[in-house]
Design a protein around this nucleic acid. Structure first.
Lengths: 220, 220
DNA sequence: GCCGCATTGCAACCAAGAGTTGCAATATGC
DNA sequence: GCATATTGCAACTCTTGGTTGCAATGCGGC
């Protein structure tokens, strides 16, 4: 399905992707292994954004990374594991939790940050990959959970503080409100394909706050 | 096995298929061709629900349908076309548009109908298939559009009638309200995997109505 | 500087699925 | 019953996923 014509300059392109900054958690092994790792993960992300998850080829990733196919198979058990590893590595940055003193500002910051990350090419690749077939690939399902659900949990204090300040009804469920906040954004990204920008984020905030004030977001 | 009937809307979707009627002037021929067709489409749905779209093989569909692989390749141009055809047939039933005289009841009927169709095994198969890789398979993208967006357009009169009755603010945008209605349902189905039932549907109605009354769903 | 060892490159494999083709068998509509 | 279109069947090619044995090379320790 994927035609791969041999390009002699691929090795030059692959190395220029990401500076070898492997963040070795264990000290001594800063050998070629980690350089290979960084190159392969970067190449995987690039391949995901360009050809998509369904058409991803291990050979293409290997050539883009300037590495042989066998090396990838020896360092990652499956191609799903490779993709999951690359996505987790690329999206490992923690979302900053705002605390401006006003719910509306805090939620706007959260929603806009979400829109910002998901409208990048890597963000779209993450969406299509995480939603592709997680039922059969536990590793991807785990990544999905980590990248979507766990971010909720970190954002819940924003809602709790608002309730304590009296800005929101006491029966407001933090998880419900956050889901009501991001659901329309994800829906547009995944289903309708409408353009999503800061206006979309701000409108989502208004909808979620209106629902909370109407006591429609109490604990289920 | 499910019995499938012909749906005239398929041809509007542009799904690649060979017309089963060699003599169109004399009505549909109920020869072996259409029996084969029905069996193959039903087998495709079953395979989708059991093994998923990514792992779908034409051979498996053929064996399940009691048909040879060649027959499928001769009647459908690509496997994507087969899947698109099967999904379009299976979900060709128009959602009934309620008109009870009260918005809340109408929206509840819509939301509950959506939940009912999407919580079946075929509904889940539709979701995972439509979200798998629509960027590279135009036919699946078209099916997605037809099955998600177009249902909105048919449901818009529900909102328009409510505005005319004075139940909703005059600045309410029908599309925005319907998107706010279904987004949390799809979000739970696709992302969080929470159990989705009629309670979820009713809560989505409350959220959407609260947002509309707060003028948060005006035209964008 | 040199050496041992782990890692990588390489080519050759195997397995499986997509898709095609020529021909025989068969059911359908007349 | 017969002509014709449709299906079954087997064999084939091509691509991709994934593995293996062996040679080559880079790394860290001395």
């Amino acid at each position: 399905m994927l035609m791969l014509s041999y390009a002699p300059s691929i090795k030059q392109l692959g190395v220029a992707m990401k500076p070898a900054e492997p963040t070795p958690q264990r000290g001594p092994t800063v050998g070629r292994g980690s350089r290979m790792r960084a190159a392969v993960l970067a190449a995987t992300i690039t391949e995901l954004t360009e050809t998509g998850y369904a058409a991803l080829t291990v050979d293409a990733v290997a050539q883009r990374a300037g590495v042989h196919k066998t090396t990838i198979y020896r360092n990652w058990k499956t191609s799903d594991g490779l993709v999951a590893d690359a996505l987790a590595h690329h999206f490992a940055t923690d979302i900053p939790i705002p605390d401006t003193g006003a719910v509306k500002n805090d939620l706007r910051a959260l929603a806009r940050a979400l829109v910002a990350t998901m409208t990048t090419s890597a963000g779209r690749a993450l969406l299509t990959t995480a939603l592709s077939d997680t039922a059969r690939t536990p590793r991807l399902a785990e990544i999905k959970r980590a990248l979507f659900e766990d971010r909720f949990r970190r954002a819940e204090p924003v809602v709790c503080r608002a309730v304590e300040r009296g800005e929101l009804p006491t029966d407001t469920d933090p998880g419900e409100l956050l889901k009501a906040l991001v659901a329309p954004i994800y829906f547009r990204l995944v289903f309708t394909g409408e353009p999503v920008d800061e206006t979309t984020a701000d409108r989502a905030v208004d909808v979620a706050l209106a629902a909370a004030h109407a006591h429609a977001l109490s604990a289920p």
